[in-house]
Amino acid sequence: MANTVIGSTIVIDGEISGEEDLTVLGTVKGRIALREHIHVEPTGVIEANIETATITVEGTVTGDIHATERAELKSNCRVVGDIRAPRILIADGASFKGTVDMEG
């Protein structure tokens, strides 16, 4: 499967757009606009506004998250920013600072 992976030593400063799943182990600064799933691994750091269908965060996200379907914050993740999604899951142990909007 043509899955996109951003490795742990990679730093992207700019904008990412696309229509496939994205796994982030490295650092992304700027903006992310996808129509699929974003997975932020424990080593992943995102300093960007995110637009996506679904997102799972195990690492660090600084920026607003707009998911059209689902946003999931796993334990040990760190999220600073506003989350807007119809379904939001925040696991026990997750660190989150920001506002939640579940009206889409």
Partner: peptide
Amino acid sequence: MPASTTLGPTIHVRGRILGEEDLR
């Protein structure tokens, strides 16, 4: 997880990419 980074066929990156691993 694989150490190498892949940017899939529908992905469009505008900006700067820095790294210390293989990039496809």
